[in-house]
Design a protein around this nucleic acid. Structure first.
Lengths: 354, 354
DNA sequence: TACGACTTCGCAAAGCTTTGCACCCTCAAA
DNA sequence: TTTGAGGGTGCAAAGCTTTGCGAAGTCGTA
C-alpha cells in the first residue's frame, strides 16, 4: 500500500470535526450543514481523498474483485476472453485477479483455494485440460459463491456457463469439407475429458453422417493441445497408407502445427489435404495458405461470462443459464478445392523450396 | 467476499477463549499452553481458517498486490510478459491486478489513478503508444511508491526499467540484410515518442553506417503499431519508384501486415523484398516464408520486471537499475537470399494463386 | 501468611469506514 | 422559566487481525 493515503481521520483532524461528520458530509447527508459540507468536500478534493477499499471491504464484506482462472495467459483465445471479462468488470467497478493453471489440475485446485483466501467475490474459470475431478468447486457451489465457467465447462446444471456452439460448428466444418470434395476427413481432438473435445467430436461424427461418409477410427487423432503433440498426431495421420484429404483441428494452434508438418511432408494445402481450424486467430490470414476457421467470438465470450457473473452476484440461487455463442465458418484458402485443382502438381514442386 | 469465511472470533467463541489467545496460539506464541495451542490449531484446520487479507492489509498497510498496466492484453508480447510477472509475483505471495490502457493515454492515466486507489503496493507499466507526458507517475515517484517500467520506458534516471537491447538488435538486423545482398533497406517505425521507436531507429541508422549504405528518408515508414497502419506504411514503400529490397519492422505484427501487402502486390519474399520482425512470436514459423526475427525474451522480461519491483519494495530509494535483456537474431527464410535466387521468377508466377 | 515470580490469558488500540443512536444547543412556544 | 422541537454532531460498534500491557491464577519461598 502506498505511503500516504489520506483517511477520513486526517480530514477530520484538519477541520476539527469528527470522523463521522466528514463521512456524512462527503455523501451529502442532510444532517450536515451546507457550509460544513462544502468545506469538507473541498478539502477532500484538495487532499485527494479516496475511500480505503480495504476498510470498505471489511465493512461491506465485499472486495469488488473477481478471480479468473485460465489454462494460460499467452494463448490468444484466453487473453482475448480475459479482455472481455476485464471490460465488463471495469464497467461495474470491479477488478480481476488472474491466475493461470498452466493446464495443470493441481495448480487449478491451488488457484481456486488461493483466490478464495484472497476473498474474491467469485470465480470465472476455464478448466485445465487435465481436470477430470471437480470437487474443488464444491465449496463455491455449496456456499453460493458466484462461479461461472467458460469454454471448458462442467456441472452445467449447477453452474452458469458460456460456450461456443461446438457441435454445430464441427458439423458444419465436416460438411464444408465434403462439399469441397474431401472424403477422408480427419479430426485431431483434444483431451477426452474436456467438454469442447466431446462436443466437437460429436459434431464431427454428425457431420460424417450428414454426408453419408463412413467413420474411420484411424482418422481421429488425439493431442493435448500442445504444438508438439499436435505435430505427432499429424504425422501419424500422414503416415497412414491412405492419408486423409482433410484435417479439422480442435483449435488453430493444433492446425498451425499440422500445417507445418504437412508442408514438411511435401504435401500441398489444400490440394492434398484441406485444413480447418477453430478460433480464427489473427494469424489465420497471414499463414500460407490462409486458414479457414471457425470464428470464436472470444471477446464477446468474456463479456458474456462477466455478465453472467454479475447476474450471479445479484441472485446467487437463480437457475444457472448456459449461453451458447454463435460461431461461423470463415472460408479462406486452406479448404477451397474447386477449379484450382489444376495447379496442384506445379505448386507441389515449389512448395518445399519456400 | 464469500459467504462465510470463519474468523478468529468464530474460533474463539467455539473454544470459549479470547480472540487474542487464538491469534497467538495459531502462531505458536510461547505464552499459550501447548495443550490449548494444539486444540486451537486443530479447530482452525477443521474449520478451514485463513486470515482475512483485508484485515491484514489494513493493519500492515500492505495489500500484496501489484498493479500492472499494459497497452493491451491480447498481443502475445504483453501476455507473455505478464506471465513472467505473475510467475514471480506468485512466488512472493503477491497477486497482480491487470489493467489495459488500450494504447490510450487517457486510459493509462486513469488506470494509474484507479490502481492506486485500490491500494496496490506499486505499479509495473508499459507505456501506451500515445503517452508523451509522464506527470501521472509523479505521485508514485515522489511518494516512493514502487514503480517499474518495461519495454516502453521513460524517466529511466528515476525509475528502474527492463528493456531489450533495442539499438544493438536493430543494428544487427540491418547488417544481416546487407550480408544477404540487400541495399535498399527500409524500416517501419512506431510512434516517435516511444523509447523503442527511438532506439531501434538509432540502431537502424548505425547499421546503415556500418555497411556504408546511404540514408534515404523515403525508406523510413511510420505506423501506430496497428495492422491497418502498418499496411498503409508498407504500401507507401511498395509504390516508391525504387522500392526497398528489405523491410525491418518495429515488431512482428507490423511485419505480418507487411507480408500480406507484399504478397498482394505480387512481389516475392525474400527474393524481391526480405523481411525481418521483432519479438519472434510463435507464428513466425508458420507464416510463409517463415519469418526471420529478433527474439525477445518476453517471459524473462516479465520475471526481471517483477524482480526489480520486489527490490524496490525492499529498498524504495536505491538508485534505479536499468536492465537490458539480450536479444538474438533468429534467421529463417524471410531474409535468406543466396543460392535460391534462381527460383525467383517461377515462384512469383504462382504466388498470387495461393 | 504474604509476597514475588511465573504461567496463561484478556483488554484495548490501531488500521479505516459507515451508521444507528444519543447528545447538545438554540430558539420558540407555553 | 421551562419544555419541546429540530438542526447539527459525536460516540461507538462492527468488520478482522495483531500485539503491548495489564491482570488473574498458581506455586514456591521467605
Amino acid at each position: 500500500m502506498a505511503k500516504r493515503h489520506v483517511s477520513l481521520k486526517d480530514l477530520a483532524a484538519e477541520l476539527n470535526v469528527s470522523i463521522s461528520t466528514v463521512s456524512r458530509a462527503l455523501k451529502n447527508h442532510p444532517d450536515i450543514s451546507a457550509e460544513l459540507t462544502r468545506k469538507v468536500q473541498e478539502l477532500a478534493r484538495a487532499r485527494n481523498y479516496t475511500p480505503n477499499p480495504l476498510a470498505m471491504g471489511l465493512l461491506r464484506q465485499e472486495t469488488r474483485m473477481i478471480g479468473v482462472i485460465v489454462p494460460d495467459l499467452v494463448t490468444h483465445f484466453f487473453s482475448s476472453v480475459i479482455s472481455g471479462i476485464e471490460f465488463v468488470a471495469k464497467q461495474n467497478g470491479y477488478y480481476i485477479l488472474i491466475s493461470s493453471s498452466n493446464e495443470s489440475y493441481e495448480k487449478e485446485v491451488e488457484s481456486v483455494k488461493n483466490l478464495l483466501n484472497t476473498r474474491v467475490e467469485g470465480l470465472i474459470v476455464c478448466l485445465s485440460q487435465e481436470t477430470k475431478i471437480f470437487d474443488h468447486f464444491d465449496a463455491l457451489i455449496n456456499n453460493e459463491i458466484p462461479l461461472v465457467f467458460f469454454d471448458r465447462v462442467c456441472r452445467t446444471d449447477e453452474v452458469p456457463s458460456v460456450v461456443a456452439d461446438n457441435a454445430e460448428a464441427a458439423r458444419q466444418v465436416t460438411r464444408h469439407f465434403y462439399e469441397n470434395g474431401c472424403r477422408r476427413i480427419a479430426y485431431i481432438n483434444g483431451p477426452g475429458q474436456l467438454s469442447i473435445s466431446k462436443l466437437r467430436y460429436e459434431g464431427y461424427l454428425q457431420g460424417l453422417q450428414d454426408c453419408n461418409l463412413p467413420f474411420d477410427k484411424e482418422l481421429v487423432g488425439h493431442c493435448n493441445l500442445s504444438t508438439e503433440d499436435a505435430s505427432v498426431a499429424t504425422r501419424k495421420l500422414l503416415r497412414l497408407k491412405n492419408h486423409p484429404d482433410a484435417i479439422f483441428g480442435i483449435n488453430d494452434t493444433v492446425i498451425f502445427a499440422a500445417m507445418r508438418e504437412i508442408k514438411h511432408f511435401g504435401l500441398t494445402i489444400p490440394a492434398d489435404i484441406a485444413l480447418i481450424g477453430f478460433t480464427d486467430e489473427f494469424h489465420s490470414t497471414v499463414v500460407e495458405p490462409s486458414l479457414t476457421s471457425i470464428t470464436h467470438p472470444t471477446f464477446e465470450m468474456g463479456k458474456e461470462a462477466a455478465r453472467l457473473f454479475f447476474e450471479r452476484i445479484q441472485n446467487p440461487t437463480a437457475p444457472p443459464q448456459q449461453i451458447e455463442m454463435k460461431t461461423s465458418l470463415v472460408i479462406r484458402n486452406s479448404s477451397k478445392r474447386n477449379k484450382r485443382f489444376s495447379f496442384r502438381l506445379k505448386i507441389r514442386i515449389f512448395a518445399p523450396t519456400f
